[in-house]
């Protein structure tokens, strides 16, 4: 086989991969703009395009609850993100810079957090949140979402902290900075990319969670987008046009965040997985 043929083969293989990844997105994006007649024609290109599905979803019609889902998701994911970033920052600082007993135990539980089936943790957590009267509240859902983002975030930020030489701390100490001053003036600026990645991850997992929200949230006032999508879908008359538009709106925020932050995210994930 000539080099040229091998090269063409590589192009074809990569394009196949890209098609596999992109097609579902393209198809739902296209479908979300097609008229009903066009959607159900069974043809690839038939009938016209319309914005009707988006105005349905964003308007006050049958699917008008969508705005509430979106707002709930946004509030819950944003607060979860802030909490996870703050906890990761504090925890990573302590684990990376202080001599302590139990340090090993804490690092061990961080690493084993993936082992605990969330479907299991949810059962007793429901009882706890019930006793605290946090069922069907933002706080109740946010507490559960912290499980999703914190172990990875803390581990990642700790990695960034570890890569900051301790000599920097010493130098700052000589300049008269206390531990808190060192944290905010020296370490935070250097580890900012790590915190961005931890924050993105926390936002993404909270935005995408169905399991915890489906049990903790019990009314429209706390229901998030994944719950809403599943509810649209469960209704007897599936309005495909509106659902497709709702999916597009649901996936846009994390895709935009990812595009903006992607250089850092890929680097951060790679350092988490490669360097350990």
């Amino acid at each position: 086989m000539s080099d040229r043929k091998i090269l063409i083969g590589k192009y074809i293989a990569l394009i196949m991969f890209l098609l596999f990844i992109i097609t579902p997105f393209m198809w739902i994006l296209y479908s979300s703009f097609r008229t009903e007649a066009s959607l159900f024609s069974g043809q690839f290109f038939a009938g016209g395009l319309t914005l009707k599905h988006y105005s349905n979803v964003l308007g006050a019609g049958q699917t008008g609850q969508f705005k509430t889902y979106f707002l709930n998701s946004f509030i819950i994911a944003s607060i979860s993100t802030v909490v996870v970033v703050i906890l990761s920052l504090l925890g990573a600082y302590a684990l990376s810079r202080f001599k302590m007993k139990f340090k090993d135990g804490i690092i061990l539980s961080l690493l084993s957090a993936n082992m605990f089936p969330r479907v299991l943790l949810l059962i007793p957590l429901f009882g706890v949140l019930f006793d605290l009267q946090l069922i069907d509240s933002y706080i109740g859902i946010i507490i559960t979402h912290i499980i999703l983002g914190l172990p990875f975030g803390l581990w990642l930020v700790k990695g960034y902290f570890d890569s900051v030489p301790k000599e920097l701390d010493e130098a700052a100490k000589i300049d008269g900075l206390g531990p808190i001053g060192i944290l905010f003036k020296i370490i935070v600026p250097i580890t900012a990319p790590g915190m961005v990645v931890a924050g993105f991850y926390a936002f993404m997992v909270s935005w995408g969670d169905y399991l915890f929200s489906s049990v903790i949230s019990q009314s429209l006032s706390t229901q998030t987008l994944p719950i809403g999508l599943n509810k649209f879908f469960g209704s007897s008359q599936i309005q495909w046009g509106s659902i497709n538009a709702a999916v597009v709106i649901t996936i846009i925020p994390t895709i935009i965040l990812f595009s903006v932050l992607q250089k850092w995210i890929v680097e951060g994930l790679a350092s988490g997985a490669v360097k350990g």
Binding site: P24, D209, T250, T254, F258
Partner: peptide
């Protein structure tokens, strides 16, 4: 720059797709 996109969207959205 685009291959990671399936990973960042909610499972509920993927399932509808």
């Amino acid at each position: 720059s685009i291959i990671m996109i399936p990973w960042v969207i909610p499972v509920a959205a993927m399932v509808v797709m």
